[in-house]
Design a protein around this nucleic acid. Structure first.
Length: 484
RNA sequence: GGCCCCAUCGUCUAGUGGUCUAGGACAUCGGCCUCUCACGCCGGUAACGCGAGUUCGAACCUCGCUGGGGUCACCA
């Protein structure tokens, strides 16, 4: 097999959409699987919407996901520049060639003329789609003022068909009668999508073009363009789109669509990648994949043909699986910034943090939840009001005090020894675990839900455990008895 | 509307003519475990859109219908 060269070509218009990420991911996996080249190209020819900040967002998104590119912005490459607005001279050259060989022509029609033509078409009541037929298609000369504003159009065939064998959809055939003389270059020299895309893919040696299936129709004009340039046509892979839960096009209204939002919500790159990979692609019954497994197992023929719907719950589940797969040291390191957001400054190699992670891990799906599950080890208890009212009551004060006493004598201060000592004390006094556990839990964590009592104690350490139990006993004894 | 694509549980999917009284995962509902909450474990509900063919036999092949999506720009 010849070298695999694939690209991801987003337009920088705000954020990197999660659907776009999936396209990027599949291409990246394909490249990595075949030791090929993954190219990142910025399609910023829409001046209205493209911004430099957006380019940075795209790069940052790709970096965060770990989808590294071999050629593209910041890393360079032999076929640069990799930003379309810096390639205008190339498009101009190619367009000139197409004019010379008769495949393209200068069109001086004004926007007003086109609008009028569209209106006339509408009035005529035909059922066919509108195609602008430029009077300049068959005119040889130019207007008197040869500098006048014009675009360059492709001389599209009116009859026949173009077909290709799509890597995910199979054979697709498009009627030429549905094509119009699409514009290659605007008066300002900016290429339109179909032209810029083809020129770049061609000059960059792209062997397979992967994109969303909203581009299926564009493939016909693009193939025509390749042929007009006497070039070999690459392979195409059109994947179904990611839809909203209700079947609409996925947008901000339905979910977080910018991929960086997931970073901020405490998702892991591998969690995002796994969920997206599995949305539309499958490998038997396997649900959870490491990045390496994805690289080894990905193939276009396992990409399904039905549009996938975004499912936040499944996404969170897959994310949680990856959180639990991460070694504790690594989790401790990664949770630090999220703890900082909660106002807790702690180092990634802090021994208390390191000890707390294994107990917090099964209770968290994201890094944010993980941070929230360990914060009380590092700062004064903040009581859950309901829990406080229910459990820190006079009737429990004595037990809390005595528990503090029992615990104070425990050595070594580990889970097993603690459990033995406390249980022995409870048995002696015929105290049911239930009566002791919740007040103690609230005392130590401020909440009614937490890891096991003895686990919390062991992480907290003797000093803080005793201190918190006594403080809670104090609160309890001075609290009013429950009114009911 | 024209053109293009698609159609298995609520969702993601396995299934490529018989092994399917359709499997897995998420969600959901029961239960177990238990000091709370999770994790984990066990079990349940739940799908081949409809209609014609082809065939001894169809979720799998063909056609039609219905439904959904995409696209018809000097956006990408």
């Amino acid at each position: 097999m010849s070298e695999v060269r694939v690209r991801f070509a987003p337009s920088p218009t705000g954020y990197l959409h999660i659907g776009g990420v999936r396209t990027a991911l599949y291409s990246w996996l394909w490249a990595r699987r075949h030791q090929g080249t993954f190219i990142l190209r910025i399609e910023d020819t829409d001046r209205e919407r493209s911004t430099d900040e957006s380019i940075q967002v795209v790069l940052e998104s790709m970096r965060w996901l770990g989808l590294d590119w071999d050629e593209g912005p910041e890393v360079g490459g032999e076929h640069g520049p990799y930003v379309q607005s810096k390639r205008l001279h190339i498009y101009a050259q190619v367009a000139e060639r197409l004019i010379e060989n008769g495949h393209a022509y200068r069109c001086y029609a004004t926007k007003e003329e086109i609008a009028a033509s569209r209106e006339a078409h509408r009035q005529s009541g035909t059922k066919d789609g509108f195609r602008f037929e430029s009077p300049w298609r068959d005119r040889s000369g130019a207007p008197e003022d040869s500098n006048s504003r014009h675009v360059i159009r492709f001389r599209a065939p009116h009859t026949g068909t173009t077909s290709w064998n799509d890597a995910v959809k199979g054979r697709i055939e498009i009627q030429h009668s549905t094509l119009q003389d699409f514009i290659l270059l605007r008066p300002d020299g900016m290429p339109l999508y179909n032209f810029g895309c083809v020129v770049d893919d061609l000059t960059m040696g792209v062997t397979l073009v992967a994109r969303g299936d909203d581009h299926v129709i564009n493939t016909a004009p693009q193939i025509l363009l390749y042929r007009a340039l006497g070039a070999e046509v690459p392979e195409f892979a059109h994947m179904p789109m990611v839809l909203a839960p209700n079947g609409e096009k996925l947008s901000k209204r339905h979910a977080a669509v910018g991929v960086l939002e997931y970073r901020d919500m405490g998702y892991l790159p591998d969690g995002v990648i796994n969920y997206l990979a599995r949305l539309g692609w499958s490998h038997g019954d396997q649900e959870i994949f490491t990045r390496q497994e994805l690289i080894e197992k990905f193939s276009w023929d396992r990409v399904g043909s039905t549009a996938g719907r975004y499912d936040a719950k499944k996404f969170l589940h897959v994310q949680a699986e990856h959180l639990r797969m991460l070694p504790d040291e690594e989790l401790a390191r990664r949770v630090v910034p999220f703890l900082a957001d909660l106002g807790v400054e702690v180092a990634g190699d802090d021994p208390t943090l390191r000890k707390a992670i294994p107990y917090a891990k099964p209770r968290a799906s994201t890094l944010i939840e993980l941070a929230e599950a360990v914060d009380y080890f590092f700062r004064p208890v903040v009581f859950d009001e309901k829990g406080k009212r229910k459990f820190l009551v006079p009737g429990n004060a004595e037990n809390l005090l005595r528990l503090a006493q029992v615990v104070e004598a425990v050595d070594p201060f580990d889970v097993e020894t603690l459990e033995n000592a406390v249980k022995a004390w409870m048995e002696e006094n015929e105290l049911p675990m239930k009566n002791v556990a919740q007040p103690a839990r609230v005392a130590m964590t401020g909440r009614t839900k937490s890891p096991g009592l003895f686990e919390v104690m062991a992480v907290l350490g003797k000093e803080k455990t005793v201190e918190r139990l006594r403080a809670a006993a104090e609160i309890a004894s001075s609290a009013e008895a429950p009114s009911t």
